[in-house]
Amino acid sequence: MSERSLCGNCSFSRRDRGIALRSCWICLATSLVIWSLLACGCDRTKPAAAAGGAHTVASLVPAATDLIMGMGASNHLVAVSNYDDDPQTTRLPRVGDYQTIDWEKLAQIRPTSIITFYGPGRAPAGFAQRADELKIRQVNLKLDRLQDVYDSIGVLGEICGEPQKAVAMAGKIRQRVEAIHKRVAGEPRVRAVLVVRESGADLAGRDTFLDDLLTEAGGVNAVTASRYVTLDREGLAALRPQVVLLLLPGEDEKSVRRVKTMWESIAAAGQDAKGCRVCPLTQTYIEQPGSHVADAAESFAQALHLPREPASQPSATAAGAR
C-alpha cells in the first residue's frame, strides 16, 4: 500500500523512496568520480614568482596589461585578467575581470598593486575591503580619451617603479600621433563612423579615445552623441558617412564580410552613397586604448585618405559602382 504525502499533490510510495535513495547514492558516486576526474585534470601550476621585486602588479584591465608590456615592464606583471589573450601573458595566472575577482589567487600572489577599470564611485565596497586586508594598492584607471591613455602610462610607470620607461613610451606615442596629424592636416576632413562590434550597429561616438584618434587621423565623426551608441538601420543610414571604419579585432573573414555587406547595403540605400567606402580593420589592438594607439591612428589615416577609385575598389558599394 502506498504511503501518501502530507504535502498536497506530492505523493511518493515506499517503492519510489527506495528507487530515489538508490538513485541518490548512484548520483553521489557518479559525481564523486566526475569530480575526481576533473580534479586530476586541474592545472597544478603555481602562480608565477614575482620577478618585479618591490613593484608587482596584477592587471584586471587588458589595455593596462598591454601598456605595461609595451613600456618594457612586463617583469612586474604577476597576474592578468581572464580576458588577456596576448601570448606573452599565457604563463601568468588569471585573477578575474570586471565581474568576478579570484581573491584566493590574489592572496597567494600578493601583488603590491592591482589595476581596475571601474567608473568613478562605482568600485564595489567589498573590493576595497579585501584589497586593504591583503595590503594591495588599488589603482583605478580611466581610459576614456586619448589623454587618459597618456596619463595612465604615467600612473602605470609609477606603480611598476619604471617612470623613465613610461615617459619614453608616452613621448614616443605622442610624437607618432602628432606626425600623423601634421601629415593629414592639408587633406579635407573625411566624415566617418567607427563601428565597434560585430553587430555592425554599435558605434563609437564623441568623447572616446577612438574619436580622438579619428580626429588626429583627419576624420570627423558622423556620430554626434557622446560615448558609445547603438543605432537601428534607419539611424545608421541617416549618418551618411564617407568612410565606414569597421573595427573588428581578430574577427574571422566570414564575420567581417557579413558586417561589410550590411554596411554596403546601408550605403547603397542612401541617396548620396557615392564614394562611401567600408574599411575593415581587424588588427587585435585596433580598439584597445593600449600601446598601439599610434598604430591604430596610422590605420585610420590610411583608410580615410585613400585615393577615391570606386570602380577598382573591392569594397565600393553597389551605388558607388553605378
Binding site: 569530480w35 580534479a39 586541474c42 592545472d43 601550476t45 579570484d102 597567494q108
Partner: peptide
C-alpha cells in the same frame, strides 16, 4: 579542498 588555484 577544491580551489581556483589548481591544487586539490
Amino acid at each position: 579542498c577544491v580551489g581556483s588555484t589548481g591544487r586539490v
